[in-house]
Design a protein around this nucleic acid. Structure first.
Lengths: 339, 339
DNA sequence: TTGAAAGCGATACCAT
DNA sequence: ATGGTATCGCTTTCAA
């Protein structure tokens, strides 16, 4: 059973390639091709398992039916879940998703964008390293539809779907305060990412509202060495003169690492130090103690991103909001000392 | 700055498209194109940001530089990690990965395979639903390079990279036995997947070695309703007449669900019931108690799969083993009652 | 209704 | 060394 092409069908049936193409794309009726011919063509195609070459079709139509998704790391559950949603939705709409991971490397991001463009994607969804405004601007000048997710460029006008990082942390910190915690530390990653900056501000502003000075209890770790740096950070926070009674972690893997560290220091959570994590990992509810987390609406991020992108690509009439800031949800568990 | 094509360069420089194509593909020297011309072409191309249309190139060369990856679910950490490895390796080799999730649905798998073939992928890596031997056979008759991962068809001759499911469970169960557990239950998913069958056999054979009857302590849940069924399964195992003192879970999410259930029944782990999980989730070491797990060499699965696939695609001379059964590793933590 | 032919953007063969 | 031209497989315009 060897491969069969459009022209083969045409030849064997003594019709033109045009007819075959039209019929197989269900444009037979509108082009008034006789039902008899249509039937012959369809049957022959089915019988011989004809499958069109999408590359050729794309080249011809100028539509690849591909969209690109660039994320920092597909093995991070947060991005994996977004990717899952993006893929499922796109697939239903007839689009294939080309994933790629930037590993937080701006140069790689640049290359990936270029590579995806070369592959004629019709649009992009990007969780940018945020050190690449240049590339993003290029996309815009090229009129390439795209939407940023998770991270955006605050000074540059684009579509985006992000979460309320500021509010999420702000609420969480206030929650700790309401539970009687007064010396609240904050462990995060060094700036560079707007999301991290927002989370820091959410923390700072909350503390400012309470009139507490935070200079010494904010620890920002570097991106490529946080595994090692967190040990010191935790130690400095919990011992004199800081003696924090609680720590807000700006992201789930920091919270996990931090908890391991607290344990090895024999510090009781939440009795000695309460903790809250921004975002969570699969088993955070099973951890000892279960970790209070600020949940992000992961699926929605992917879902809205696809919706916005499709609107840009296909120019649907119904306009939807193209800048979305989604709410987070505080899931209270024992690690913050509640209940 | 509008888009520029090969022919534009040729025209502006008064050379042929051939020359431009050759030079830009670094075949200038071997085709003895004068250095002067080469330089002109390269400079012009760079200056005007020429980027070749991969679709056109692929159509012309017959090589898409795409490979397809089909997995059940990208949001499952296990597959996400494999995908991550596959992507990183492929990217270095100049290939783009087209991911797609079958959601354990054989029909969707069929469609995905077809869709990827239409997009002219040069090879496939598939974690099959295992209800699709037909499609796999078709791939073979089409001479399409592919390698199965995680799941394979035991009665059908293909390349694959899997783990030693049998041995992994067998060892884990023996470990429980060595710790003094005698009534060991097993919770898994209904057959269909060879991996699950192997895990079951690993358990059965271990128990047979000990001369223990297991008929009543094996619970196989259905794929689409295990969240609900696990409650009963656990209850039946722990209460009279079974009274198991330990449970082996055939996969990480069952272990997580199971632990939640055990807790809500106020059963102490590991004192009353020890547990071991096949595979793990991100925070299993932080759980109360930390969960003993059979680790799979996730990255290697992806890595070897790409290696094998590339060998098939590019026909490298160095032959490597094309059926690999990788070893698992038992990570002993407190949930099994050790230490 | 149907078919011929141009075109999508590249590669590669075959002359010159 | 360089260029003309066929080709990849399909869509689509235009004439018949």
């Amino acid at each position: 059973m060897k491969k069969i092409y459009l022209k083969d069908i045409a030849k064997h049936l003594n019709v033109s390639k045009t007819a075959v193409s039209l019929v197989l794309n269900n444009k037979g009726d509108e082009n008034k091709i006789s039902l008899a011919t249509q039937k012959r063509i369809k049957e022959y195609a089915k019988k011989h398992n004809y499958e069109p070459n999408q590359l050729a079709r794309s080249l011809s139509t100028g539509k690849s039916k591909n969209i690109g998704l660039i994320i920092p790391d597909i093995s991070d559950t947060f991005y994996a879940k977004i990717a899952s949603r993006v893929e499922n939705m796109s697939e239903k709409l007839g689009y294939t998703v080309l994933f790629s991971s930037s590993n937080e490397n701006p140069n790689k991001e640049t290359k990936l964008i270029q590579s995806l463009l070369n592959r004629q994607v019709e649009g992009l969804i990007i969780a940018s390293t945020q050190q690449n405004q240049k590339d993003i601007q290029i996309l815009k000048t090229k009129n390439m539809p795209f939407v940023l997710i998770d991270r955006y460029y605050p000074n540059y006008d684009t579509n985006y779907v992000i979460v309320d990082n500021y509010g999420g942390v702000n609420d969480a910190v206030k929650h700790l305060w309401d539970l009687g915690r007064r010396k609240i530390g904050f462990i995060s990653l060094k700036p560079g990412l707007e999301a991290m900056r927002q989370r820091l501000m959410g923390y700072r502003d909350a503390m400012k509202d309470f009139g507490v000075d935070t200079d010494d209890v904010i620890k920002e770790l570097s991106y490529n060495n946080y595994e090692n740096e967190i040990k010191n950070a935790i130690e400095e926070l919990v011992r004199h003169p800081n003696n924090v009674d609680s720590i807000m972690f700006s992201t789930h893997y920091l919270a996990a690492l931090g908890l391991r560290e607290l344990r090895s220091l024999n510090i009781k959570v939440p009795d000695d130090v309460a903790i809250i994590s921004f975002d969570e990992m699969g088993a955070f509810d099973l951890v000892d103690p279960p970790i209070t987390s600020v949940l992000q609406p992961v699926s929605d991020i992917g879902g809205f991103a696809v919706k916005i992108l499709m609107q840009e690509i296909e120019g649907k009439s119904v306009e939807i909001e193209k800048r979305m800031v989604l709410d987070t949800e505080l899931i209270v568990r024992r690690s913050c000392g509640a209940s």
